[in-house]
Structures are given as structure tokens and as C-alpha cells.
Design a protein around this nucleic acid. Structure first.
Length: 425
RNA sequence: GGAGAGGUGGCUGAGUGGUCGAAAGCGAACGAUUCGAAAUCGUUUAAUAGUUAACUAUUCGUGGGUUCGAAUCCCACCCUCUCCGCCA
């Protein structure tokens, strides 16, 4: 959420910053609303002050002269009643304004960072660096072909139990998934992250707090009988973990790692990535999350990204780092570095981690603050996948494939998986 | 799901419709005492918003209602605890 005060006092600056996303934002209406609300706030406050004084006076009069039915007293009470009516009228106006402002303001995305490359869409994203040597050859198998030949997962049967875009992992496939989760959690907890295991169902407030609602209700699954949604990413419960808190600056940065299943409707992606592990309604992910001092978030952003990179390097998977351009940034993010892993069968890099600095955008939506010079200040939040498990598995299968049809398991994963090669059962 | 008991400042815990933003205690801060410390004594100490002090407003689980005035009365909801039921 953007700062209401900034909208009220400097709407031109807000429009200018938003327009960096490559679209035109007109905030005239919301600006007017905030100005009117401010006026009403002041009005209400002074009316309340008068009414409070009057009530006190009535109390004193009653104690002074036992007779609590005198003419003067009744006049005073009548006057008090008038205040009450007037105040409630203003409060009604205030309530409506608040609602309107909230509706509008929570649909505005975060300001892009000035450091992010400007551009309209993903074609303007900037490759910052690459790591490793991408495997390039013809006759390379796709991960779903490997999965089938080694009997690692199954999607046809999964549509029987659920629908398309769900998968059942089998035998070594399930084992590899589990190994990857444990490996990543261990790496990150050794590296200073505290592990959380959060609820998979989250309420609407939480989704608003991290920016998925109200704008993207289409992208999550909702429970019909409760105000609960299947969490699309652990970022949601992790943000909500400290909702409405003022965190002692001595505790910052707070670094969490959480494994969670993630549920996404993938509306509008019909026909894309229909095979394999790339785009599923349910997938596993290990998520990194930081709450940090506002002055430290640029540094933190580099660190969280390199913590995610570290996993790719340990798994010996070639990847590149991409600086997401202003037009392609997610709703809550001011700057995002994507890590894209090399998938030899499709001869391209695919997103496997997205590391974002949300500045105070989520913190304001979720009311998470810290004390700076005795003043309450919204802190900064950052999130990054470390990593998406399914896509990691796909990358391991494709990059580790051998001419005999087996798959080499990266050395650092062997203690977790229990053997050096995946072979036909 | 059923029955009961609760939800008040950093914590414990009083609170009768009117100097109640709230007793008392603990804790914390400062001071005195001391070579220093403990103990003792004294003073101070809720938060949030309005850019700041002053000032004003809000806040006793949340949202409504009654009233000139609500921590206190009424209604709804949420949460916690105990017991019962069910259950991985």
C-alpha cells in the first residue's frame, strides 16, 4: 500500500512514480478523497472534544446539585444529544470515505525502484550474469520424458483424483522432492534463517497484507464455507506472522525460511507448460523472507538473492540472474531479481526463484513497524524463493541426464537422496 | 459440536455509568545511600494517530447499540482456558 499522506500532499509525484510501470495511473479521484477525509477527521476531532467537555460539565453539575432533572441540566443534555447526532453524521461520511480510499489505494501497485531497468514487458528485462555452462546438445530428453522412463511421477492418474495441472510423485520422484526440501531447509537454517512451518490456509486479511488481494482474487483457490484461501506462497503467512506488530529494531533483520505447498489457479495460462513439473496448481517451495530496517533493504536484497543462488550453485545447475524491468514487476515489488535455471530440453532459462524487495509496501498493508529514533516506522520486507522444488527437480533431471538414461544426482544432494544416480527401477 | 469460565498497560491484577487512561503489585528508568554492589528509600514510567512540543483525538478482545457520558449496561462476533464428545 502506498502512503496516504503522500497521495494527499503530492499526487503528481505518486502518478509519476507509478507511471514507471509503463501504464498511466490517474489518482485524481483518490487524491480528492484523501483531502476530504483529512478535513472530516479534523472536524470530528474538534466536535468530540466539545462533546467530551460538555459531558464532564454535566457530571459535575449533577454531583453539585442532587436535582438531576432541572431545566438547565436538561438543556445541557439536549445540547449533548445534538453533538452526538452531528458526530455520527460525520462518522458515517468518514466511514464511506475510508472504504472508498481503501478500495482504490489497495489496487495501486508499489513504486518501481529507480534502479530497475525501465521497460514495458519481460522483453526489456536485463540479464545481469550467468553461472555455469549450459548443457547444449541435440537428443536431450525433457524432464517429463525422463520422469516417465524412470517412473518418477504421474499426471494422468492425478487428473482422476483432482484435475489437470496436478501431479503425483512416485518412488524416487517423491524421495527426490523430499531430499530437495530437506537440503534447502538445512542450507538456509545453517545460514542464519529460522525455519517456520506455516498454515496452508490463510484468511483474506493475510492475502491483502501481502498484496494478492483484492486485485488478484482469480489467482488463488478459495474455500467456499470459510474466509480461507489456499496459500499461493509462504510469503503470505510469513508476512502475516508479524502483522500489527512493532518490532524492536534490535531484533532486525528477522530472517525466516519456510517450506510450504503453494496453490495457484494459473488462470489465463491455458496451453502453456502443460507437460511436466513447470506449471502446476500445487507445488512445493522453500521460501526466504526478511523483515529489515528500511536503511538496510538494498543490501538485504542482494543477500537474499545470493542465498537463493547458493542453492543453485550447490546443485551445480547453470542459471542466470535477471533484473526485472519496471513494466514486468510484480504488484508488491519495487525491484526483483529473477533466477532462471537452464533447461536443456527447451534450450532456455526458466524462472526458478524470484527475489523481491517490497520496501514498506507490504509492511504498510500489514501494519508492521519498527522504532527508529523513537518514531514508529514501517519496516521493509523482502522475499525470495530458495527455491521452487518442482522446477528444481525438472532442472536436475534434465541437466543430470546421462546417455544410458540414468540421471546424476548433484554431489551435495547425495547425502539427502541416498544415492549417486537415479536409475530405472 | 455441547457445557462452563474468561479476554483490562511490558507482566500480574482491581475497577460501583460521571476528574477512569484506569488502583495496587511486579518489572523498567533515574536519583539517594555505598569504595562498589545487594538490600532499602525517593521520583518517574501505557500505547497509537494528527510531521514536532504544547494540544487534540482514539484505545480496556472486535464490531454495533443504549446514554449528555460506557472498561462498566445490551446485542452480535472473534479468541483463550477447563470439562465432555469426535478425531490424525
Amino acid at each position: 500500500m502506498l502512503d496516504q499522506k503522500l497521495i494527499r500532499e503530492n499526487p503528481a509525484c505518486v502518478e509519476e512514480n507509478l507511471s514507471l510501470r509503463g501504464k498511466v495511473y490517474d489518482i485524481t479521484r483518490i487524491h480528492e478523497l484523501t483531502v476530504r477525509k483529512k478535513e472530516i477527521d479534523i472536524e470530528i476531532s474538534s466536535l468530540q472534544s466539545e462533546s467530551k467537555k460538555l459531558s464532564k460539565l454535566i457530571g459535575q453539575e449533577i454531583r453539585k446539585c442532587q436535582d438531576n432533572n432541572s431545566k438547565e441540566l436538561n438543556n445541557l443534555k439536549k445540547k449533548g444529544n445534538e453533538y452526538r447526532i452531528k458526530i455520527s453524521e460525520f462518522e458515517e461520511k468518514q466511514r464511506i470515505l475510508d472504504e472508498q480510499i481503501n478500495n482504490e489505494i489497495s489496487n495501486l501497485p508499489n513504486f518501481p525502484s529507480k534502479d530497475a531497468p525501465t521497460g514495458k514487458d519481460e522483453s526489456n528485462n536485463v540479464q545481469v550474469k550467468t553461472w555455469g555452462n549450459p548443457l547444449k546438445a541435440n537428443n536431450l530428453k525433457s524432464h517429463w520424458e525422463i520422469g516417465e522412463s524412470l517412473n518418477l511421477f504421474e499426471s494422468i492418474k492425478s487428473t482422476k483424483m483432482s484435475k489437470s495441472r496436478f501431479i503425483t510423485l512416485i518412488g524416487n520422484g517423491a524421495r527426490l522432492e523430499r531430499a530437495l526440501i530437506n537440503f534447502m531447509l538445512d542450507m538456509h537454517t545453517k545460514n542464519g534463517y529460522l525455519e517456520l512451518m506455516t498454515p496452508a490456509l490463510v484468511n483474506s486479511e493475510s492475502l491483502k497484507g501481502s498484496g494478492q488481494l483484492p486485485k488478484f482474487s482469480n489467482e488463488s483457490f478459495k474455500c467456499s464455507n470459510d474466509d480461507l484461501w489456499l496459500s499461493p506462497t509462504a510469503e503470505v503467512p510469513l508476512t502475516a506472522f508479524h502483522k500489527n506488530e512493532i518490532i524492536d529494531p534490535k531484533r532486525l533483520p528477522i530472517k525466516y525460511v519456510a517450506y510450504s505447498p503453494c496453490f495457484r489457479r494459473e488462470a489465463g495460462s491455458y496451453g502453456k507448460d502443460t507437460k511436466g513439473l513447470i506449471r502446476l496448481h500445487q507445488f512445493n517451495k522453500v521460501e526466504l523472507y526478511w523483515f529489515c530496517n528500511p536503511s538496510k533493504s538494498l543490501e538485504a536484497h542482494k543477500k537474499i538473492t545470493s542465498d537463493a543462488e547458493n542453492i543453485l550453485q550447490k546443485l551445480e545447475l547453470p542459471y542466470r540472474l535477471v533484473d526485472i524491468c519496471t513494466g514486468d514487476l510484480g504488484f508488491s515489488s519495487s525491484r526483483t531479481f529473477d533466477l532462471e535455471v537452464w533447461l536443456p530440453s527447451s534450450k532456455c532459462y526458466r524462472e526458478i526463484s524470484s527475489c523481491s524487495n517490497c520496501l514498506d509496501f507490504q509492511a504498510r498493508r500489514s501494519a508492521i513497524r519498527t522504532k527508529i529514533d523513537k518514531k514508529n516506522t514501517y519496516l521493509h520486507t523482502l522475499n525470495g524463493s530458495g527455491l521452487a522444488i518442482g522446477r528444481t527437480m525438472a532442472a536436475i533431471l534434465e541437466n543430470g541426464q546421462q546417455s544410458d538414461g540414468s540421471v546424476k544426482i548433484p554431489d551435495s544432494l547425495v547425502p539427502y537422496f541416498g544415492s549417486n544416480f537415479l536409475k530405472t527401477p
